[in-house]
Amino acid sequence: MSSNLETRSLLDDWRNFDKGCFFDLGHPLLNRIAESFVKAAGIGAIQAAARESCFMAVEGTESSNSPDITGSKNKKNRFPDLRGETNRKSLEAMVKSTGKESLQWGLAAGLYSGLTYGLKEARGAHDWKNSAVAGAITGMALALTSEEASHEQVVQCAITGAAISTAANLLTGIF
Score class of each variant (00 low, 15 high):
Met1Arg: 15
Met1Ala: 10
Met1Val: 07
Ser2Asn: 09
Thr7Cys: 06
Ser9Phe: 07
Leu11Gly: 08
Asp12Glu: 03
Asp18Val: 03
Cys21Gln: 10
Phe22Cys: 13
Phe22Asp: 11
Phe23Lys: 08
Phe23Arg: 12
Asp24Val: 04
Gly26Val: 01
His27Asn: 14
Leu29Ala: 12
Leu29Gln: 13
Leu30Tyr: 06
Leu30Arg: 15
Asn31Phe: 10
Arg32Lys: 15
Ala34Leu: 04
Ala34Pro: 00
Glu35Pro: 00
Ser36Leu: 07
Ala40Gly: 04
Ala41Asn: 06
Gly42Phe: 04
Ile43Asp: 09
Gly44Lys: 01
Ala45His: 08
Ile46Gln: 06
Gln47Tyr: 04
Ala48Gly: 08
Ser53Arg: 07
Phe55Ser: 09
Phe55Trp: 03
Val58Lys: 15
Glu59Tyr: 08
Gly60Tyr: 06
Thr61Ser: 15
Glu62Asp: 06
Glu62Ile: 00
Glu62Thr: 07
Ser64Tyr: 03
Asn65His: 02
Ser66Leu: 08
Pro67His: 13
Asp68Thr: 00
Ile69His: 07
Thr70His: 11
Gly71Pro: 01
Gly71Lys: 06
Gly71Asp: 01
Lys73Glu: 05
Lys76Thr: 10
Arg78Tyr: 01
Pro80Gln: 07
Asp81Lys: 13
Arg83Phe: 00
Gly84Glu: 08
Gly84Ser: 09
Asn87His: 05
Leu91Trp: 07
Ser97Gly: 12
Thr98Tyr: 03
Lys100Arg: 15
Glu101Asn: 15
Glu101Gln: 15
Leu103Gly: 12
Gln104Pro: 09
Leu107Lys: 15
Ala109Phe: 09
Leu111Asn: 08
Tyr112Lys: 14
Ser113Cys: 13
Gly118Leu: 02
Gly118Ser: 05
Leu119Phe: 06
Glu121Arg: 10
His126Cys: 10
His126Asp: 11
Asp127Ile: 06
Trp128Ser: 15
Lys129Phe: 04
Lys129Ile: 00
Lys129Glu: 07
Ser131Pro: 02
Val133Phe: 07
Ala136Gly: 13
Thr138Arg: 14
Gly139Cys: 12
Thr145Arg: 15
Thr145Met: 14
Ser146Lys: 08
Ser146Gln: 03
Glu152Met: 04
Val154Trp: 04
Val155Asp: 10
Gln156Glu: 08
Ile159Pro: 09
Gly161Trp: 07
Ala162Trp: 06
Ile164Ala: 14
Ser165Asp: 07
Thr166His: 14
Thr166Arg: 11
Thr166Val: 12
Ala167Pro: 02
Thr172Lys: 12
Ile174Phe: 12
Ile174Lys: 13
Phe175Arg: 14
Phe175Gly: 12
